[in-house]
Design a protein around this nucleic acid. Structure first.
Lengths: 173, 173
DNA sequence: GGGAAACATTTTAGGCTTAAAGCAATTTGG
DNA sequence: CCAAATTGCTTTAAGCCTAAAATGTTTCCC
């Protein structure tokens, strides 16, 4: 409990500081740009290798990766949440992968709104083949990081994710 | 030049090690997924806020951010390299931003292949207004990180970027 | 039971993005 | 000097992606 009027003023100050005395957020901004650069760089590299080696796009690969972890299949909503993309996006992606024979899609017996998708035999075989190489590419891209670096990055990124989720929640609230 | 057959075999071994004795790259894979999750999360949040508050897309904002740092303008190639996107992408983006009055575009006097683009007065004013809020959003998204966390992340991401660039170079070579 | 709300998915309209091919201007090497 | 390579940009074709509206289905609750 604040003891004096001056204490109260100090508290107010600290809470509204960002508005009244615009702080220096340059460090966070630089961090965000660096994070984005790293991701874009690696993503572009992986995209190119997938295209050259297997003539497959990254979104297709990502979708198959989700399904590979779910032998009993997933609903489109599940996929959409996991991949953090819109529903409509998944609809189109699935459409093309069913067309090419990599996915199997059926309406749920118990809920006719729901579509359940699975990898076909072909889809699973092709994914496994691609995933094996993909894993090596990733290891190579991160090759200069020590195991300690990796652990530390994991920890800090987990903290970053939590912070961002909290902030996103604050906005939606 | 390898001197013996055994040297050759050793070279082969070291080059194909990952295939012959499959190493555990699960940690790197997890790290990559976490990196991607963080970026996607923050990027989506920023995209949504830009749309809601200013009815502007993220790529447009990014392009304007590049130009704001270059009062004398940039060529399309420069922009394309900085933003790490394809040339054709920039062409379309610039087209729309010229159309909306945010960018000024002129052919270089000295090299008629080159297009130089600049922010217009309107473009600069709007960008500055957006950037001020954007900076606060970013600070808020990273709010739970201590200054030490930020420094450490900067360091590790710099190392990651260097590692990835080296790996990308190896492939192109 | 029946209407309202919630849910899963698709559709729509518009924009973003890429790789590859094409065009024009410039630079380079013989 | 001039042909060949390079450079800067645009075009093309295809696919990715989003937000918002639309459709059909199920659940909730009175």
């Amino acid at each position: 409990m604040p003891a004096t009027v001056s204490d109260c003023i100090n508290m107010l100050d600290s809470e509204t500081k960002a508005v009244e005395t615009p702080e220096d957020h340059a460090e966070e901004l630089r961090l965000w740009l660096r994070l984005l650069t790293c991701t874009t760089l690696i993503e572009g590299e992986v995209r190119g290798r997938l295209r050259q080696r297997f003539d497959v796009t990254l979104p297709r690969f990502d979708l198959m990766a989700q399904l590979d972890k779910a032998p009993d299949g997933m609903t489109l909503s599940d996929v959409s949440k996991r991949m953090m993309v819109s529903n409509g996006n998944v609809t189109g992606l699935v459409e093309r992968l069913v067309e090419s024979g990599h996915l199997d899609r059926r309406t749920s017996e118990t809920d006719r709104r729901v579509q359940v998708i699975r990898l076909t035999k072909l889809g699973r075989a092709e994914f496994r083949r691609m995933a094996a190489e993909h894993e090596i590419w990733i290891a190579d891209l991160f090759a200069d990081l020590t195991p300690k670096d990796v652990r530390e990055l994991m920890r800090l990124l987990a903290k970053t994710k939590a912070s961002a989720q909290k902030s996103a929640g604050r906005r939606r609230a």
